[in-house]
């Protein structure tokens, strides 16, 4: 993940564990809220048969927030769950990525991305260990 597209880093921040993000961004820079952190839901849709007509599966909790740094840069966040501090930090990082992408990427996003990849890799490795290797015991002649 090269994290150059805004949608990539916003997605990574949305999935981040709030406590981990707080570790990586201990001190929040000054900011003004354009929209204070607000808890709500998003209706998750799916498709019948996996690929067919859309239907409503159920809602998930989401927290959103919009803020402005002293530089005037606006940061947005939509994050899974009900953690307002998480949404605030995600919006701050979104704004910082526009002002100072290199430092922000190196200190916050890259560690988050690497940890997320490692978690997925571990889960896939455990799944792979439960993959069935069929072998034929007896096969008839015809």
């Amino acid at each position: 993940m090269n994290l150059t597209e805004r949608r990539d880093w916003m997605g990574l921040l949305a999935r981040a564990a709030p406590a981990r993000l707080a570790e990586l961004l201990r001190d929040l820079p000054a900011h003004d809220f354009a929209r204070r952190p607000e808890i709500g839901t998003v209706m998750v849709r799916a498709r019948a048969g996996g690929t067919g007509a859309a239907f409503n599966l159920g809602e998930m909790t989401v927290t959103r927030c919009t803020l402005r740094l002293p530089s005037g840069t606006v940061g947005h966040a939509y994050v899974q769950g009900r953690d307002k501090a998480h949404a605030t930090r995600a919006a701050v990082v979104d704004a910082l990525m526009q002002d100072d992408p290199d430092t922000t990427r190196a200190t916050i996003l890259t560690p988050l991305a690497q940890e997320a990849e490692a978690r997925t890799a571990t889960r896939c490795a455990k799944a792979a260990a439960t993959k069935v290797e069929f072998f034929t015991l007896v096969r008839g002649d015809n």
Partner: peptide, 23 residues
């Protein structure tokens, strides 16, 4: 509890074909 929350919108239909499967 759900009825107390505002709804921000509806997601794009999830792509279950791209699932990271554990089973």
């Amino acid at each position: 509890y759900r009825t107390t929350l505002p709804r921000f919108g509806a997601s794009a239909p999830v792509d279950t074909g791209a699932m990271t499967v554990s089973r």
